[in-house]
C-alpha cells in the first residue's frame, strides 16, 4: 500500500494527546511525526513533561491518541477500542517497566508465562517457551524463585524475558534502568542491545539517562509534546 521501500513498523503522523478540558487542558503530545523501522533500537529522551511517556503509551496501544494517525505494521490502529488494543498488545507488543511490574508471590517462570496464557498457548509449550526466554536473559536457574527472592537487576531481566516470551514485534521499555545502579543498568542495556542485534528485535526505550540512550542506534529528543530532534547516536555503546 505504501510507496516507501520498507514500510515502517511504527508510523505516527500528527499525533496529539490531550488530557482534561478547557482551562485544565494539557497537550501531552502536540503533533508528533515519527517512524520506527523493524530492527531499530530507538531511545526517546526529554525533560519531564515533554510527553515521552505518553508517546510510549500511545505506541504501546495502552493509550489512544486524541487525533492523528498511527499505523502499526501498515495498519491504522489509532481508532481501535480498548479490547482491540488489548489484542494488539497481546500479539505484537512487549513491555518493560521501570518498576519491573512482576506479579508478587508468583514464580519467575509463571510471570514469564503470563503473556502466553492470554495468547492461548498450551501449558507444556508455554512452560518450554517461558524457560527459553528466561534462558535468553540468563536466569533459567532462577525460574522457580519468587520476585522477592531476586535482586533488582534479576527482576528486570525476568521482566525482559516476559516481554520476549510472547514473541513480540516491538519491545517498549519505559525507563528500564531507572531503579538500578550503574553496573546493573549497563548489564541490562547490554542484554537489550544483544537482543536487538542478535535477534533483530525492535526496541523503543524511554530514558532520562544519556549513558543508556547511547546503547540505542537512534535518539529522539522530545520537548513540549513535540519531537525536537531525531538523530543517530554515537553508536557502539562504548
Amino acid at each position: 500500500m505504501q510507496n516507501s521501500k520498507v514500510t515502517p513498523l511504527i508510523s505516527l503522523r500528527g499525533i496529539t494527546r490531550v488530557y482534561g478540558m478547557g482551562e485544565a487542558e494539557v497537550r501531552a503530545l502536540d503533533g508528533v511525526d515519527l517512524d520506527v523501522k523493524a530492527g531499530e533500537f530507538v531511545a526517546i529522551m526529554g525533560p519531564s513533561g515533554s510527553g515521552k511517556s505518553t508517546a510510549m503509551n500511545v505506541m504501546g496501544c495502552l493509550d489512544s491518541p486524541t487525533s492523528g494517525q498511527y499505523h502499526f505494521n501498515g495498519v491504522e490502529v489509532a481508532g481501535l477500542d480498548q479490547d482491540q488494543r488489548a489484542l494488539l498488545r497481546r500479539h505484537y507488543l512487549g513491555f518493560i517497566f521501570q518498576g519491573y511490574n512482576l506479579l508478587p508471590r508468583t514464580s519467575a517462570l509463571q510471570n514469564v508465562e503470563l503473556p502466553l496464557i492470554y495468547k492461548g498457548v498450551r501449558r507444556d509449550e508455554r512452560e518450554a517457551r517461558a524457560l527459553e526466554a528466561l534462558d535468553k536473559v540468563g536466569l533459567a536457574e532462577r525460574a522457580h524463585h519468587d520476585p522477592s527472592e531476586l535482586s533488582g537487576g534479576q527482576q528486570q531481566r525476568v521482566a525482559i524475558a516476559r516481554a520476549l516470551a510472547g514473541d513480540p514485534k516491538v519491545i517498549l521499555a519505559d525507563e528500564p534502568t531507572g531503579n538500578l545502579d550503574t553496573k546493573r543498568s549497563s548489564e541490562i542495556m547490554e542484554l537489550m542491545q544483544a537482543l536487538n542485534r542478535e535477534e533483530g528485535l525492535t526496541i523503543v526505550m524511554v530514558t532520562h539517562e544519556e549513558d543508556m540512550a547511547e546503547y540505542a542506534d537512534r535518539l529522539i529528543w522530545m520537548v513540549d509534546g513535540k519531537v525536537a530532534f531525531d538523530r543517530a547516536t554515537q553508536k557502539g555503546g562504548k
Binding site: 495502552l62 480498548q82 488489548a86 489484542l87 497481546r90 500479539h91 510472547g166
Partner: peptide, 9 residues
C-alpha cells in the same frame, strides 16, 4: 500488568 500483556476487559 495483565492488561499490558494483552488481557481484555
Amino acid at each position: 500488568i495483565r492488561m499490558a500483556v494483552g488481557a481484555q476487559a
